[in-house]
Write a protein that binds this DNA or RNA. Structure first.
Lengths: 338, 338
DNA sequence: TTGAAAGCGATACCAC
DNA sequence: GTGGTATCGCTTTCAA
């Protein structure tokens, strides 16, 4: 993998200076005579020398690498966030180490493993961290940015999940619905964090405000996937008294719900209104009403927060809250019997 | 970022052996007494020690890291492939460095830069490499696996793009269509490789076989995105004599086409049949007819090919060709005037 | 401004 | 089977 490598010593010899000088010159450090610098740069270029990243990381303790963990690599949402992060990082000359974290064990491995050693900073997307662990990370002065939830000690970027849910459910209520189901993640998912909880809370709040008692069987688990949404919708439609509207916590679940409805000949939005969250690329295609968020923007903001942190590790952590917006399309409408 | 680092020396001291023994024990090398090995393993685990990848890469030349490059990080297809790769790598204790390569410059950076030294191997997805560069990589004994296209010198995984296109277009022809458009990538995309070319070739072959002359204005560029597909479809529908069917090279473009059709009141499949490629998660939702491929499987196969390569670098490169399958849903049907 | 030399944390060769 | 130690390529004091 590494054939005829040219080392810093080769360059030093060729340029007639010491390796120390080469190192300084190449990295633009002060205390190098302009003439010397120029000569070093020239010979380095001529020999097409590039510092071995492993050696320099080992010696300097920095790697220009950021490690990122997401729960589901092939989920639409996470792919967008990853893309946003990567775009900013590569622009700044940082490399991205990507991890799928699907269990407590893998999360621990991510937070404590070689990563801490081989990356300058961490980005965590929608991964629950126990308060104790957060505290320990803070004590260790870890460079960490979270997406999707907020810990006081670290910069974060998220949306207002409470108001997301409220506006979605309020939209349904406004259309005249009172029989409204909610589709969340798996009940025992150890990784999903505040997102489902806050969204459920918003749902319950609005129901209470309009005097509708929540029904337990209307709270179903869709695993944030199309398939999960399909299954969950099937369960809802099997009820003796199915809901007239569904608030899915993600567009992917909402799309699964649409399939289930269509298969059973349930008319949308006549018999059933469906609203999601995200504004998935395909939402416009299926005419899905949703609460939109600028997902890949989350990623770029997170990356920037982290880079800022590198510059000034002691600044107070910044907490970003991105805007969301109700986008009404054709999967929501008044209930049939209004 | 590295606060209480625990080094191999710490472990050695704690276990009462030398660093050499620790190194051997941890890596499962021979010449370590079973009892000693056990003790070392135990104390290493207790201290949650993990070797610094930079140090070991520097000393041994291997880093248990794979670098992967894809053209569009937030495209559905690529996210799936990334997920497939990551799953296999993490299972084998490898880390994944991810890069978005969108230009010749970034490709060169990926292939030649320090990256090659940081990682043990490279996975390239749908990124065109000039023959000369391939040759040079082979000479340097680069560890490389390609996805989506094939170079003789390196293992690869792909699908039969020619037959993908043929079966899609044959399906349309079988329904009675003769006025069939094709939606490809951007004409001057420097990165997309054989995929669009082969698929176009398949399209042309089938047309020729049934005696239909291809029309230049029926070959539009959709950029492999939903938006691109939307624009391209709009262009087609603006023609005096629009096609009755469209073969989109990806489901995302096909979905964009569906939106455009709906907005103009064009009935699908009555007035227009649409077929895509991929079997995107949302394809089932919109009832899109498509040629399915097991995308994330591409990724896991690629990762495995690379890991195999590490074991036996001199074996003849293996070329995988994954299966595809026509999935007929509801966006294709006979033309109105049949 | 420049250079000599001491690490950085592991691996691997060579004695014992 | 184990332990010393040179080595990997670079960064970074510390002197000169």
């Amino acid at each position: 993998m590494t054939p005829n490598r040219v080392t810093i010593e080769d360059v030093a010899a060729e340029a007639g200076v010491s390796v120390a000088t080469v190192s300084r010159a190449l990295r633009g450090l002060p205390n190098v005579a302009p003439g010397t610098r120029e000569r070093v740069l020239a010979t380095a270029a001529a020999m097409s020398y590039e510092a071995d990243p492993n050696a320099s990381r080992l010696a300097a303790g920095r790697s220009r690498t950021v490690a990122m963990a997401v729960p589901v690599l092939n989920g639409w949402y996470f792919a967008q966030v990853v893309a946003g992060v990567e775009a900013v990082l590569s622009e700044s000359g940082y490399d991205l180490l990507l991890f799928g974290v699907t269990s407590d064990a893998s999360r621990t491995r991510f937070l404590s493993g070689p990563l801490r050693r081989r990356s300058d900073g961490l980005i965590l997307v929608d991964i629950r961290i126990p308060a104790l662990e957060i505290e320990s990370l803070a004590t260790q002065k870890a460079q960490l940015v979270t997406v999707g939830f907020q810990a006081e000690q670290f910069p974060s970027v998220r949306i207002d999940d409470l108001s997301v849910a409220r506006s979605a459910v309020a939209h349904l209520v406004g259309l005249g619905h009172t029989s409204i189901a909610i589709m969340a993640g798996l009940p025992d998912d150890p990784l999903r964090f505040t997102v489902p909880e806050l969204r459920r809370q918003g749902y319950l709040e609005v129901l209470e405000e309009v005097g509708v008692a929540p029904r337990e069987e209307f709270d179903v688990a869709g695993n944030f996937s199309i398939d999960g949404g399909y299954e969950a919708m099937a369960k809802l439609l099997d009820l003796d008294d199915p809901p007239t509207a569904v608030f899915a916590m993600s567009d992917e679940m909402a799309m699964g719900a649409l399939v289930a409805a269509r298969e059973r000949g349930v008319d949308v939005p006549g018999d059933l209104s469906v609203i999601g969250v995200d504004d998935h690329d395909a939402a416009a295609v299926v005419g899905l009403t949703t609460v939109a968020q600028a997902v890949s923007h989350h990623g770029s903001v997170a990356a920037r927060l982290l880079l800022d942190r590198f510059e000034d590790p002691d600044a107070a952590p910044v907490h970003h809250c991105n805007a969301t917006k109700l986008v009404v399309r054709s999967t929501t409408g008044p209930p049939r019997d209004t």
